[in-house]
Each structure stands twice: as C-alpha cells, then as structure tokens.
C-alpha cells in the first residue's frame, strides 16, 4: 500500500458522516450478456448524499452495475438483469416504473464527454424541456444559469451560450455534461469514469465539483484511479470478475482492507 494513498484517504474521510440512509439498494443483482454472466449476486447500498466509488480492474462489472441503477442496460438488446434494485425502497425494475421518470431521478454522466451537437444553452435546456420543468423562457434561462453555476462552468461560458457545446475543451465538455445532468434536478447522479478522458488539471476541477455536488446529490462513481476513489468517496466497493469482493468505508478499504484480493489490488499487485 502506497503512502500517498493512505494519507489521501485519511485526509479526505475525516468528515464522513457515520449514519447516512441508503438511497438506492442493490440486492442479489445478476447481469447476463447473452450467455455470459457479467455480474454475480451483488449487494450494495448507495448512501444518501454520499459519494460511493466502484473500483476494480477492467471488465470487473463495475460499469455494468452502475448502468443497472438507472436501467441504462435496457438499451442493450442482449442484456438481462435479475435481482432487486430499489430507489427510496421502490423497485426500479417493477413493470409499473416508467424508465423515463426513473432516469430523470437517476441522472448519468458518461466516460467520454458527449455533449449534444447543439449550443451550450440548448445542451442544458434539453432535459428541462423534455420533462416540462421550465414553464417559460425566463425560468428556463434561470435553470440553465443555475445548472452551469453548480457545475462551475458559468464564468467560462456565460458570454458564449449560443456557441456549440462541442467547441469546448474536454474538461469543459464534461462539466457541461454534469450541468446537463443536474439541470433535470435528479436525486442520484451516476458517473461512469467521468475523468478517464481528461488531463490532470481538468480531473482536479471535476473532483472538486463532485465534493460540492455531494451536498445536494447522491453520487455513485466508477473510477479506474484508486487515488481518485480515495480522494472523492466516502464508501468504496471493490469488484473483481463480476463479484463484489469488499464494500465499506473508503478509509477502511484503503488502509485496512479485510479481503486479500482488495489488498492485492490497491497495492498494485494485479489489475
């Protein structure tokens, strides 16, 4: 275990509240892609107003699990999900649940920044428009400004809202995507390796942003970088080969892992 990781974990986790309630729960979640099983009986709680990091080597199922939380796997034809996933104790795979409403409550930020080929303004206004959240133009403009401010992008783009979102730098694009997600006022934000396509400075900005967003949103983040998990999260889940190996407080996972595999992964022996 590297000294750096230990210090960072200790430094960030001093404020971790002890007793947050679970916002989302996964129980015995299994996922099959065709014949191949990608996830085996995963039990995780995503705590309210906390950052939960999902770590593990490539192909371990952490992104697959994340995509179960807002049913993004529905888009993939050959994907089957079993087990229970609940949001505020309601089963999200219930046939009565409209996946459109679910995704408005559980937003998502993707690995690669994927702004729509529209102006910056239209990118943010997209979600509020399709959900009818803004009654008139003024409220819509307020929503856009508020979302951009919360994503820390307002000062950089306020003079060029009518320019294409694709013209921003990679880090700015990713913050635009975060702003786009929070414009719908979700309760949970899922982030699938949000910094993997960014340089270290843009990454640091996003991480600061995650700290701020935690006040209002529940966040689940998939990351390849253990340092990042240690810096931003309060809870960490370690996946390996489709199984949840260990789940606990981030500080405990990084300083005193219970499982040998976790120990091996965070000290860089494999993965």
């Amino acid at each position: 275990m590297s000294a750096v990781t230990k210090e960072q974990a200790a430094a960030t986790d001093t404020t971790a509240p002890v007793s947050a309630l679970p916002k989302m729960k996964g129980r015995k979640v299994c996922v099959h892609y065709g014949e191949k099983q990608a996830l085996f009986d995963v039990d995780i709680d995503i705590l309210d107003k906390q950052v939960t990091a999902l770590i593990g080597p490539s192909g371990c199922g952490k992104s697959t699990f994340l995509r179960c939380l807002n049913r993004m796997n529905d888009v993939v034809d050959i994907c089957r999900v079993s087990g229970d996933v609940t949001l505020d104790d309601g089963d999200i795979y219930d046939s009565k649940v409209d996946v459109v409403h679910l995704r408005a409550r559980v937003g998502m930020v993707f690995q690669k920044p994927n702004p729509f080929p529209k102006t910056i303004f239209e990118n943010i206004a997209y979600g509020p428009r399709i959900h009818g959240l803004a009654k008139d133009k003024t409220t819509l403009e307020e929503t856009v400004e508020k979302s951009l401010r919360r994503a820390g992008l307002w000062e950089e783009v306020k003079d060029r809202l009518d320019q294409p979102g694709t013209g921003l730098s990679g880090g700015q694009q990713q913050r635009l995507c975060i702003a786009r997600a929070i414009a719908v006022e979700p309760e949970v934000i899922l982030m699938d390796e949000p910094c993997s396509a960014l340089d270290p400075i843009a990454t640091a900005t996003i991480e600061d942003l995650i700290h701020e967003l935690r006040e209002n949103f529940t966040i689940a983040i998939v990351t390849h970088s253990m340092q990042q998990a240690a810096r931003v999260s309060q809870k960490t889940a370690f996946f390996h080969l489709g199984k949840l190996i260990e789940y606990g407080d981030t500080e405990q996972i990084f300083t005193n892992p219970k499982q040998e595999k976790t120990q091996g992964y965070i000290t860089g022996r494999f993965g």
Partner: peptide, 15 residues
C-alpha cells in the same frame, strides 16, 4: 451517429 449521444439523451430521461 455515435452511441454516446444516444445514451446521453436516454440518461436524461428522454424517450
């Protein structure tokens, strides 16, 4: 059209 754009839109709850 890249899949990421579709997922981005679905992820915001668009039909």
């Amino acid at each position: 059209v890249p899949r990421s754009l579709r997922e981005g839109s679905y992820g915001l709850g668009a039909t």
